[in-house]
Amino acid sequence: MNATQSLTARTGNLFHRYANPGRFLRMGAKLQPWLTWPALVLSIAGIVWGLFFSPADWQQGDSVRIMYVHVPTAWLASSGYMGLAVCSLLSLVWRHPLADLAAVEIGPVGASITAVCLATGSLWGKPMWGTWWVWDARLTSVLVLFFLYLGHIALIRAFDEPQRGYRAAAILGLAGAVDLPIIKFSVQWWNTLHQPDSITVTGAPTMSTSMLWPLGLTTLGFTLGFGAIVLARLRASVMESRIRTILAANRGRQSANPAPKPDSAAV
């Protein structure tokens, strides 16, 4: 018990060092270009490679090129939610203020990416499988993930008192994480129309290296891009909350002061 106590306390201290808004803004400004520019370069390189220089698949023809945008968005839909679940844990256990703001900002980005994943999958399924949509385990579990994102977006903004919204949304965020292993293993546990993974941790990829390279580039590029967008939104969000605090303090000084100065009333 003593060990857990010191563990939670120590990890808590570690996280709270980054809860200082000033420190976060300084570090965020430094980190931003390291995410933004590699993301742009890698994504563009991967897309050009995938569209024009990678070979067509022997049975799918050129439609296999949809993979270079579909697979990264699918990976980000799940990992984005993983990030949301981690923020939820930090929020529920350590009451970390930055984790709450991050959860607010990850939600809409993750939901958009999941929508793109579903749409590009549909655009791939129509010419290849012969249908836009089937209710198999993989497709349905990703649709559930999309609704979890939407629920989280709505819930975290649903309360007049933000703290209550953060708590409620964090519980939803953690509970929804149950869907992540279901998405991952759906193609192994049940027979589905969606094919099993080509790239696995244990086995060799069942994909030509000439297709693996552009896929790796877009996956890395999109992931950095996701990080860059979330970081930019989070920085903006921290600045906005600082603006609100300053304005509230100014108003407080005004009402405390019986005769406000005309220039401070203008602010």
Partner: peptide, 14 residues
């Protein structure tokens, strides 16, 4: 390119 409309739609949307 085969299936060009589908490919363009997917890349355009992304």
């Amino acid at each position: 390119m085969t299936h060009l409309p589908y490919i363009l739609a997917a890349y355009g949307l992304t």
